[in-house]
């Protein structure tokens, strides 16, 4: 199969799923679900960068955007949960 067509199909799937996840992140009442959904949007964005021939950006996004940002969100969430309990 043609490489371009495969790329387009993967990009369409990634795009639709990440848009749904972004809506979940905005709408869901549970903060932990929202944070995880935003992290997955970031991870899918990094795959999209790889398809768009930007490996440098993909590495940065995977390490920083979806890894470390999510970790810091959970630190804050943990603190708030402990305080509320």
């Amino acid at each position: 199969m043609n490489k371009e067509i495969v790329f387009i199909i993967i990009a369409l799937i990634l795009g639709i799923v990440s848009l749904i996840l972004a809506l979940i992140a905005i709408h869901n009442k549970k903060l932990s679900v929202a944070i995880l959904a935003a992290g997955v949007v970031s991870l899918f964005a990094s795959v999209l960068y790889l398809l768009m021939a930007a490996p440098d950006v993909a590495m940065t996004e995977a390490a920083i955007g979806s890894g470390l940002s999510t970790l810091i969100f959970f630190y804050v969430l943990n603190k708030i949960k402990k305080s509320n309990a």
């Binding site: 440098d56 940065t60 390490a63 890894g67 470390l68």
Partner: peptide, 13 residues
Amino acid sequence: PGGGFQGGAIIAT
């Protein structure tokens, strides 16, 4: 591909 920012982020991981 890669460089200072990516390597620094990996070390922080």
